[in-house]
Amino acid sequence: MILPPIQYLRPATPADAVATLSEVDGSVVLAGGQTLLNVLKLDLAHPAALVDVHRIDALRGVRHTEDSALVIGAATTYAELASSPDVRRTHPEVADMAAGLVDRQVRNRGTIGGNCCLNDPTNNFPPLLAALDARFRILGVAGERVLRADEFFLGTLTTAVGRAELLTAIEIPALPTGSVVAHEHLQVGADSWALARAVVRLDVTDHVVTDARVVLGAVYGSPLRLSDVERMLVGSAPAALPEVELDLDTADDVHGSAAYRREMAEVQLRRAVRAAVERSGR
């Protein structure tokens, strides 16, 4: 419960944060801390310093670009996302996801950037952001780079954010008119961490699916995009999925076997497709 010895640093700007990360060996970013501090309590990691970015104004809040893309500061909390009329107007699925996350207390501290940078396979946001074609802005000493989800999420607890880099913002393009997003997951208990998660986005024009994103969470190290399934959905009217068998390399854990998780991923996938189809019919 007592943290290992650690230094606390609080830079004022994103650039300062990056400079600090590059100068202080063993330093890591502290965003909301709702996972990282637990990791430290359990002695599972021993960074030398925490670089707190939670209060950096430039990393907080949401705005829309001229082409209606949503830009979310990486240190924006779930509570802020859930209560933002701007987010709800253009990206209700992001607001809904944030509103249902963990619990009241954690929503006030936990950040979308932290959720992504941790990339715990059970985390909610990575698969959703992958389905929304989000872009990840990463600031380093040498400047900024922007990555797609498949470039950003590299594996269990691993992302493309380097040692002296900082995720500054997540940019979500405006969804095309007629686009629907559905999310289904199976949890431990009524509403706890996920055993399997599926996010489905269908872009529908004139009753035809023109594009699709199908992404699984909680079954694999990173959000898993299922291109084969997407191809099955594109080009025809929105329709439920036939039986699909997924070839997933997933693992046993305390909440379920690999086989069960695989099957549950299939169930959640079917359900998410069905929900998206229903939504597109409205």
Partner: peptide, 13 residues
């Protein structure tokens, strides 16, 4: 080994 993996029922359950 902790309340993350040992799910004690919450009010919502």
């Amino acid at each position: 080994g902790n309340f993350y993996d040992y799910h004690a029922a919450t009010a919502l359950d």
